[in-house]
């Protein structure tokens, strides 16, 4: 536990020192919110942007971090300590959850102060959806990191997976803005379930279905990532 705590703290500190992560997870969503502030119904943007923040961190940024640890022999150094691969991956999740939370809280604070948006209707289901969505994006990131040959490939694959996903799942633009064909494609994407669960918690009726689908995706991705994990 001590190792996991310290490693998570260390990873979040490293994330906070990375200008790219800071911009895309903290500043960029606020920029989008301000650009869309002419909309009457600003609330519908929040759950979508939360999912977007988590996808940027877990799917686009994190695989590159892990792959660079492998490429630069950081993992090799950790392999000769008592730290287990599970602890290592959990620390990445911990850091991503915290960073995602920081971005989301900041975004909501801006919405509250500048645009007088309503509070989320169901805080607990919303928190659950947030954690599930973060775990899911991280587990997808672990799969990418596990088969990417180097950190440049991991970054590229992360981007290629993340970008279409945030648009088609209704994370970067709300689902209402998509035409029916795009929405049907989006229905098959994992992040759509995250957006749905977050929307249910924010202003809808919380349901178990999207959470269960996410749990299934997490289990499958973690099994694949666990089987493919290598220290070098």
């Amino acid at each position: 536990m001590k190792a996991l705590g310290r490693l998570s703290v260390s990873e979040i500190v490293l994330l906070a020192r990375d200008p790219g992560s800071l911009f895309f997870m903290l500043a960029f969503p606020i920029m989008l919110l301000v650009l869309n502030s002419g909309n009457d119904n600003l609330e519908i943007l929040f759950p979508s942007y939360l999912a977007m923040i988590l996808a940027i961190g877990g799917i686009a940024a994190m695989p590159g971090i892990l792959a660079s640890y492998r490429e630069r022999k950081v993992l090799r150094r950790l392999a000769i300590t008592p730290v287990s691969p599970v602890t290592l991956l959990l620390a990445q999740v911990g850091a991503q959850v915290l960073m995602g939370l920081a971005g989301s809280v900041l975004l909501f604070a801006v919405g509250l102060v500048a645009f007088d948006v309503d509070l989320p209707a169901h805080p607990l289901p919303l928190a659950l959806a947030f954690v599930a969505c973060s775990l899911m994006t991280c587990s997808i990131g672990f799969v990418i990191a596990s088969f990417a040959p180097n950190d440049r490939a991991a970054n590229l694959i992360g981007m290629v997976v993340m970008f279409p996903m945030i648009f088609l799942s209704g994370a970067a633009v709300p689902p209402e803005a998509l035409n029916s064909t795009l929405r049907r494609i989006g229905d098959w994407l994992p992040l759509t379930q995250g957006v749905q669960a977050l929307r249910d918690g924010w202003f809808g009726t919380p349901e178990a279905f999207p959470l269960l689908v996410m749990a299934g995706i997490i289990a499958v991705c973690m099994a694949i990532a666990g089987a493919l994990f290598r220290w070098d």
């Binding site: 260390s10 490293l14 640890y69 630069r72 022999k73 090799r76 150094r77 000769i80």
Partner: peptide, 15 residues
């Protein structure tokens, strides 16, 4: 119980 220093291992640059 075993400590080691390996050839060409590294830490994250910002650590």
């Amino acid at each position: 119980r075993v400590g080691a220093q390996l050839q060409e291992s590294a830490l994250p640059d910002r650590m």
